[in-house]
Nucleic acid binder design. Structure first.
Lengths: 356, 356
DNA sequence: ATTTAAAAAGAGACCGGTCTCACATCGAAT
DNA sequence: ATTCGATGTGAGACCGGTCTCTTTTTAAAT
């Protein structure tokens, strides 16, 4: 049977109505599932629709209703397991609530983020979940709110903006990780993040870290180090681990510098993987020569030798929370905005040893 | 400054037109960037739009034009790195061509896949890229085509359907992997896949493997084994490695059975990871006690000890190809459907050793 | 100065649904 | 029998854009 796809004009309610010999309004009532219709007419229309192969035009539908049944999600990088897990959490909640999800990638670039948000608003999404790439820039977000689109920030908050946010307990988590290392005798601890920066550039100023999640972690790290009597801990907070090559350079710079760190905290699992590779290729043994802790319980952290001690962020749960909050806001209340902080736990594996 | 979000009705062309003291049609021409307008009027309208904060309603726009500027992607599992990399490939091409991407997860379930496709068609996507969860069921796909929506299959083909498809060279890849193991003296080789099945269930029948990609790989595996004079190779083709627990059981069953395999091929990187974990927890040394090859060059495969020999599928490239093909079909020609097969390479690392 | 074509602007239909309102029908209550 | 309310159906406006068709303005050609 050849597929002589007729590719004709899509079937509309009017077509179905004519075929079922009822008015357009009545056919629409059956097809749209609203209003009251007699059983007889309903079955007529249903039958006609089936024969004709009617498919509702969701565009037209949401144009009149004003609701699209869709929520937009803007993430930094879909390929990052952190975000794809979050997206699943969001999607799962969204689906059961009858919403669909449009995903856009910002690539952690503000311009792309703006474009994506504009586009999603143009598509009349019912709400937005955004991972802001720059927590200092809030104009595009505040006028998204101004337009009336419910918004929930994910993973990062924007202090200047009164808006719902779901983040990890980043400060606590970093303190926990740092104390863990301290308890093994480590004093010189490096903190490595992927934020754009020169190799060797260290943390001096909040403006270097536009993502509050990273900033809070650094704050927690510094607080814990300071409490342990370590001065100048910020000099070992390093930027620029944007890809394997840069990470190699950052690690080389760290290991060649003074003080030489005996432990490294990786700000996320991608950086963690790269740092681990760097250490491997340099022939260093973990944890004998150097200890390492990574954020996010990525799957690779369990199969290395040794497996990696991680700060486990319940990302799936964070995604769910964000979606739940957003949907609550879409459906209903304009209650005050709230900041949800999800606790993290430390999973101790084999990558932390006594300081040499 | 308090955000007294007025949350008023969105600004429309009519509003802008009134404010700029021109007709709706003229304002629309400026805002929509079509037709001819004088510079003077153009700047008037632009200014008015800026003041009012006009945002085009893409829904209305695509309802009249018939094009939504969106392509829909249905994948098996976004969390799987294979798919998220593919999605990036698709997105990258789509973005530069001016298309946006809506992603839907099927969870490898046919019903969810159908629902997702219906929804996307309802949203009037300009085209679809689908990873069919069951290559035997094509009704929903063929009537998607019937409606006139361009379709490209990804990773798996549907023999019964004349439609574009982009897949890996699965048969060749599996043969390559198998021969590689054979060259190390392996005769009893197990092939493990995640497809639903009882622990211990082995391959007897094509109907067990609804994904053609897996089926082709198994065919390649069996062909290579047969060429090497191995009988009953199909008895070591095992199903049911759906999660870590099941994979543990499958591996246990394999290692306790006769013949006991000296090497395992994992059908994808998720199964590969689980198999590797199983071997680790059983205290087996790779490759001394047993060899392993996994499909897909996932990041975890490089940091294990030893690193894993993999069949590298250029997934990003496959995603790009699928998107390019789809866009070509959207824009223009109704040429005959084509099946693109992307070659794979074997990356030899340390997980394959001499058969004991 | 007059004709003519091209460019600019306006009026209103249209896309495919939903929704309001009016009208018709019907059984039950008075 | 009459009134009433509920239920079912139809007619047509509406959402916010695009697009066709018509009219007016402007510039070029005679």
């Amino acid at each position: 049977m050849k597929d002589f796809a007729p590719s004709k004009r899509p079937v509309t309610v009017a077509d179905v109505a004519k075929s079922a010999k009822v008015s357009k309004a009545t056919a629409a009532r059956v097809l749209g599932g609203y209003g009251t219709v007699s059983d007889k007419v309903r079955s007529q229309v249903t039958a006609a629709a089936a024969v004709l192969g009617y498919r509702p035009n969701e565009l037209a539908r949401s144009m009149t209703t004003g609701r699209s049944g869709t929520i937009g999600v803007v993430v930094g990088d879909i390929e990052n397991a952190f975000f794809s897990l979050a997206v699943r959490g969001i999607s799962d909640v969204a689906r059961t609530a009858g919403f669909n999800v449009i995903i856009a990638n910002s690539g952690e670039e503000l311009s792309a983020e703006k474009a994506a948000i504009d586009l999603l608003i143009g598509r009349r999404v019912d709400g937005l979940i955004v991972t802001p790439s720059d927590c200092g820039a809030s104009d595009h977000l505040s006028d998204a709110i101004g337009v009336g689109v419910p918004l929930v920030l994910f993973d990062r908050a924007i202090p200047a903006l009164q808006v719902d946010a779901v983040t990890g307990a980043d400060r606590d988590a970093a303190m926990m990780a740092t104390r863990h290392l301290q308890s093994f005798g480590h004093r010189h601890i490096a903190y490595v993040t992927a934020r754009e920066g020169e190799v060797g550039e260290y943390f001096t100023d909040e403006s270097q870290l536009p993502a509050t999640s990273v900033l809070r972690r650094v704050e927690g790290f510094l607080a814990a180090q300071s409490a342990n009597g370590v001065q100048d801990a910020h000099r070992l907070v390093r930027l620029g681990a944007v890809d394997q090559d840069h990470t190699d350079a950052v690690v080389a710079h760290l290991l060649g510098g003074t003080p030489r760190p005996s432990a490294i905290i990786a700000s996320d699992s991608v950086v963690g993987l790269e740092v681990f590779r760097s250490l491997q290729t340099r022939g260093l043994s973990v944890p004998r020569d150097i200890s390492i802790i990574s954020f996010f319980n990525a799957d690779w952290t369990t199969v290395t030798t040794p497996p990696i001690t991680v700060v486990d962020q319940p990302v799936y749960e964070m995604g769910r929370r964000a979606a739940e909050r957003l949907i609550a806001r879409i459906d209903g209340g304009a209650e005050a905005s709230q900041h949800f902080t999800i606790q993290t736990t430390l999973i101790s594996r084999g990558s932390v040893g006594q300081a040499s």
